[in-house]
Simulated scan of single mutants.
Amino acid sequence: MSDVEDMDIDSVDAPAAVTFSSDLKGKKMSKANLPVSAGDTLPWVEKYRPDTLSDVSGHEDILQTINRFVSSNRLPHLLFYGPPGTGKTSTILALARHIYGAKNVRQQVLELNASDDRGIDVVREQIKTFASTRQIFGGVAGKNDGLGNFKLIILDEADAMTSAAQNALRRIMEKYTANTRFCIIANYTHKLSAALLSRCTRFRFSPLPVEALRRRVDVVIEHEGVKITPGAVDALLKLSRGDMRRSLNVLQACFASSTPLDDAGRPDTTKEREEITESAIYDCIAAPHPEDILMIMETLLKSDITTSLRAINEIKTRKGLALADILAALSEELCRIEVPKQTRVLWMEGLAEIEWRVGSGGGEMVQTGGLAGVVRKGVAVMGNTA
């Protein structure tokens, strides 16, 4: 007797009188697809999470491939990997709503995150129990499109699973393929076993391009009535570095800080909100302002090492900047100026070494001196080759 014939049977009747947030106009569904009554108290990351695949910004090539899988009703096991905030979870949740409909998602989809216990016991009990049951009828209740003849298990942050749990999971993926599809989401594939990787169709979600970020941010700005300058929007998109979650969180933080308060420290709705400026964006992220970086670069290029070191330490203390942020911004500015190739190689190699030392726990005072020394050494080489 086959494994499919041995499976238990699930009922397909959906709970009655349940209202989902996606059914309410103007409301957004939370990540867990649970009924939402919080309204505007939701973080914007959840409030404006895409409801459909067409709402997902960027990665059009991945969306086209997934749509072809769905239209032919041949969805394989999926592996989404890439940096945080690039749309991996939003894409699979939008796909689940497309396949099953909003009212059937809770019944047909099992979502486990890294915050859940994901040891071998969970794989053997919770995941296996969900995967081993099948519908009594094909398809999804209330939908006659032929889709959804399988359940969907989403394992978010799967690179946090133990090796034993991954080994147990690969057998379950093989045994219940006729009934269940898996979507594994991870930031780093090298933490996943080769057996899992070989069983999935892989899609890499790269950092989102600026235009994709801008489309979604503009929608949020319009719906929330955010007063923000064009320069501030450009700075927000640049500092987000392709991370949609980061851009929306920073925008919401700046929007909250622009709210005028009364004498009791409560929001004063009678006054207009302040306009969000480029300076407010940099202050919120605690990133160095472009003028500060230009000042540091000019000092390093034209002054002696003692004066340069004093100027860098003064700006760091006054603005509360971290050396790692200064290194990242300074390297971009140094790459823009025309210098001999020997100087450029010396700068990039030296800055990379200092960044590694800072990340490994090196003292900021000593590494700041190293930064000044590297740039001044490159200037000396440039003078010798002139």
Rank of each mutant, 00 (worst) to 15 (best):
Y188W: 10
L192S: 03
F205M: 07
A212M: 01
A212V: 04
I185W: 04
V217F: 00
F182K: 06
I185Y: 05
A178W: 01
R216D: 00
S193H: 02
V210T: 15
D218G: 05
R216E: 02
V210R: 15
H190T: 12
A194W: 00
S198N: 10
F205V: 13
P209W: 08
R216S: 06
E211C: 07
T201R: 14
N179L: 14
D218E: 14
A178F: 04
D218I: 05
R215A: 11
S193F: 00
E211V: 11
F182H: 09
T189I: 14
I184N: 10
L197Q: 05
L208D: 09
C200K: 09
R214H: 13
T189F: 00
E211T: 15
S198W: 06
S206K: 15
R215W: 00
V220M: 06
V217P: 00
A194P: 01
R181V: 14
S198M: 07
V219K: 14
P209T: 11
A186E: 08
V220N: 01
F203H: 12
S206W: 01
R215F: 04
L192A: 07
E211Y: 03
H190M: 03
L197M: 12
R215N: 09
Y188M: 04
T180D: 03
R181N: 13
D218T: 14
V210N: 03
